[in-house]
């Protein structure tokens, strides 16, 4: 009972208090990262940003992973599936926040809508997990030979993997009886409210909530900053190619 009480308090903390801390740490991280870059010397003028070339290489290299395709076909496949998984899962979560609803797929038939909101996410979850495990395996395999990872190279991957395992666990383990009010999980009133269609597996859900928030907090401090900075570096690379007429 005592454990249940403590756990309940903890779970309540994950939902009602932690989101504020998450947002604060995330914003602090963004501020730190920007300040870290902006406090460095500007350096000599690089090539001016040439938008068409910048856009071209962002599409080719960031969206289509052109260079990875050229260098390592298996890694390209894994990265494509990993990023499709990321996009798909983020999109799926938006339904819980009422940014879209299953009815938008009903025009293509009820069966298709069912597939899109129930069947596909489960398989996408497995695929997402498999790609992360490969990335972790690859990193450990090459460690000390071709790369020398820093703690945050593993940090982001490990937190993401735990978050994904917990998320997938929610789907595959049977739900437990939990209070009805968790059908709508209010993280920040009137701003971030998660509406759940089904009661999820209790423990998996709340630990998933915790690790998702840890991931959000860690994002600007971690190597995942490449999600944003990688677009900028690819755009600059595109402009460089233009300048050198390549």
């Amino acid at each position: 009972m005592a454990l249940n009480g403590a756990l309940s308090a903890l779970y309540s903390f994950f939902v009602t208090k932690l989101p504020y801390i998450t947002i604060a740490v995330f914003l602090l991280g963004v501020t730190y990262r920007l300040q870290r870059w902006l406090s460095a010397p500007k350096g000599p003028e690089g090539p001016p940003l040439h938008w068409p070339s910048a856009l071209k290489y962002v599409v080719l290299d960031v969206v289509l992973f052109r260079k990875t395709y050229k260098t390592d076909k298996l890694m390209w496949l894994v990265l494509v599936l990993f990023h499709i998984g990321t996009g798909g899962i983020l999109f799926g979560h938006m339904r819980g926040f009422h940014l879209w609803s299953a009815s938008m797929f009903e025009v293509l038939g009820h069966g298709f809508a069912e597939f899109m909101v129930h069947t596909l996410p489960l398989y996408m979850g497995w695929m997402f997990l498999a790609t992360q495990i490969y990335l972790l395996y690859r990193r450990t395999r090459l460690e000390g030979k071709q790369l020398q990872s820093l703690a945050n190279d593993y940090g982001a991957l490990v937190i993401l993997l735990i978050t994904s395992i917990l998320g997938q666990g929610m789907r595959i383990f049977p739900p437990e009886a939990i209070p009805t009010e968790t059908y709508s999980v209010v993280f920040i009133p009137n701003l971030i409210v998660l509406h759940l269609e089904k009661v999820p597996s209790h423990h998996w859900f709340f630990w998933h909530v915790l690790f998702t928030q840890l991931l959000v907090m860690y994002l600007p401090w971690s190597k995942l900053v490449h999600v944003v900075s990688g677009v900028a570096t690819s755009a600059l690379y595109g402009s460089r190619r233009r300048k050198y007429d390549l």
Partner: peptide, 9 residues
């Protein structure tokens, strides 16, 4: 900061 130490190079 962007280098993911992916070793693709």
């Amino acid at each position: 900061d962007t280098c993911a130490h992916c070793a693709l190079c």
